[in-house]
Design a protein around this nucleic acid. Structure first.
Lengths: 337, 337
DNA sequence: TTATAAAAAGTGATCGATCCACTTCTGAGC
DNA sequence: GCTCAGAAGTGGATCGATCACTTTTTATAA
């Protein structure tokens, strides 16, 4: 099988000699077709076609010290940010970059080391870290490294937290419906977004003078965690509204409520997050927050490209790309009926 | 900003001169630390540490003609095979390969061209095409190209179709419950798997002497398509069981049934595919087929690596990695009660 | 024509590693 | 002390492009 013709691909020199010009001329053609006299140009084009020549990008990278490649680093695990990635790929490709995906098992330390190696290897021009990489020690200064939750950083600079506005709006909405006692089933606390939501939840409850039965979950984003949280509640807890970490968790909450004979939304209101397709079609359909993951993916890449090229950083995407969507899973509490 | 110290990373020559040895010795150290005398070895190690030297992988690739990099090509679009990819990454990394992801917009022709370019660019040692790339014209023979649905190919060789066993088992199960009239809401027919399921559905209906109201959907995998399919049925269609393209479609079917006053599973049984988390927690929970996406991802990479190394191809994963799971969305039909 | 500037093409060095063919050490055996 | 084999180390070529210069050709004006 490996015995196929080991014929090496054509090089720029072979093209040059077939075309009867120097290798430099061919190189020039590759960079700007119009810098050649039409006659030479035809010869070169013919030779390229005849030999089916394609430039060896590795050799080119070596000389130019440009690879036109970015790396996206993510922690290996069950949560795979597909939509963000898809948008990131597209944006990068449009800008002429290839994207290498590196998923890393192990903790933040391992990740930080691998990122350093990657940065020093000369293989990529920039790195986008999807999962937080922490602030560990020396960070290579050879290539820009951008963390995906960068506009969280941006907000943090202003003393705010990402998602703050939405969590507050959810609670406000529910309290206007008459809810007084809340529960938060948190998402994986390893994620900045989940931590932010939790903080803002607690803070808002306090500010509006409402009651919280507490925060459950927090280990992952599973529907099971929602189910477990709700089924573990004491009967007299008084909770009538749940703010879930995301739609999956919310679905688990709904199912858990059902399991103990509570109807949603009659006895319990549930709010999700992410506007997943299943939340639109489940019964009851889930109130949720529509987030524009694609916009975040695009922004992350734009940010990285700006750093690479030394351009001014782009404006973070408008915060109201996050929209509250009210569906069947929220209603006034039983006591208010 | 771009004015940071343009200090170039250390090269093998600098290491050599600091260590007082030749560059070749350093190179040998990098390849096999034990081929050096302990005394020289210490000198080299010291120099490497002092200069924080890391080999330039681009230069290395150029000389060795090995990049240790694979490419995964997928059609840009809303369906992002996250779990398959995650497993593929992991497998590749374990084998010492980096993975580049190339998502391509445009039709099969564009895709085929880009794949050719990629193959010829010398940047990757193998290509895994997730979306079918068709059989268009010349295919580069420089690096192995593997299509992800390769074990479909394997089965096709035996005159079978992938998923055949499961679709047949689903219909058989439903018919044993008493169902006689079926409907299939197909997934995107651009996908081999969706086409296979459809064919086997039709074939099985025929073989078992059952009735089919037909095949709807087929444009995508959306829940909306399931909803539309079911709400468009005439009242007297007699359909009591639906085989949906996947869990999302199934959820749409359930919701659509609800919208026209049919209860699931009392009036209609619904079977999904994929064993998504939401199907386990929706109401009713969905009967489905658990497929091992990770296994497929791993297999695809193993297959590719085998081709690269000229090893014998690995056995396709056992077919019974697909398991039928019976949940609340299936039951005997109303007439049989 | 010829002088001259601009455009086009050519020469050889270079990027940072590995590999190949040698040379120099080292130490065992006599 | 000498020989000699094997281990250790060296110098220079090489991979396939681009780049900085130099040389040749072409176009334009006098």
């Amino acid at each position: 099988m490996a015995g196929a013709a080991p014929k090496r691909p054509a090089t720029i020199h072979q093209v040059a000699s077939l075309a009867g010009v120097s290798h430099t001329t061919v190189s020039r053609y590759l960079q700007d077709k119009d810098s050649l006299k039409p006659k030479t140009r035809v010869k070169v084009e013919f030779a390229i076609k005849t030999l089916d020549y394609r430039p060896n990008l590795v050799a080119r990278s070596m000389r130019t010290r440009k690879t036109n490649r970015l790396a996206i680093v993510l922690a290996a695990g069950p949560y795979f940010p597909g939509r963000l990635l898809a948008a990131a790929f597209e944006t990068a490709h449009k800008a002429g970059y290839q994207v290498e995906v590196v998923s890393i098992e192990g903790g933040p330390k391992v990740r930080a080391d691998r990122i350093d190696d990657l940065a020093e290897s000369g293989q990529v021009e920039g790195i986008l870290a999807i999962s937080s990489i922490g602030r560990t020690g020396r960070r290579s200064r050879r290539v820009p490294i951008v963390e995906s939750d960068i506009y969280d950083d941006h907000l943090r600079g202003k003393g705010e937290l990402a998602n703050a506005a939405e969590v507050r709006a959810i609670i406000q909405h529910l309290s206007e419906l008459g809810h007084r006692t809340f529960l938060h089933v948190a998402g994986a606390q390893t994620h900045t977004s989940a931590r932010n939501r939790k903080s803002v939840y607690l803070q808002t409850i306090e500010e509006l003078g409402l009651r919280s039965f507490g925060v459950l979950g927090g280990d992952d984003w599973s529907a099971q965690s929602g189910y477990d949280a709700i089924t573990s509640l004491p009967d007299d807890c008084g909770v009538t509204a749940v703010v879930a970490g995301n739609d999956g968790v919310a679905l688990g909450v709904v199912r858990g409520a059902l399991a103990r004979g509570w109807q949603v939304p009659r006895d319990l209101s549930v709010f999700g997050w992410d506007d997943e397709e299943f939340g639109r079609f489940s019964s009851p359909s889930l109130s949720t927050v529509a987030i524009d993951r694609e916009a975040r993916g695009r922004y992350a890449i734009h940010h990285l490209l700006a750093e690479i090229q030394g351009d001014p950083l782009p404006e973070p995407p408008s915060r109201d790309i996050n929209r509250l969507i009210f569906r069947e899973s929220t209603a006034p509490p039983p006591t208010a009926q």
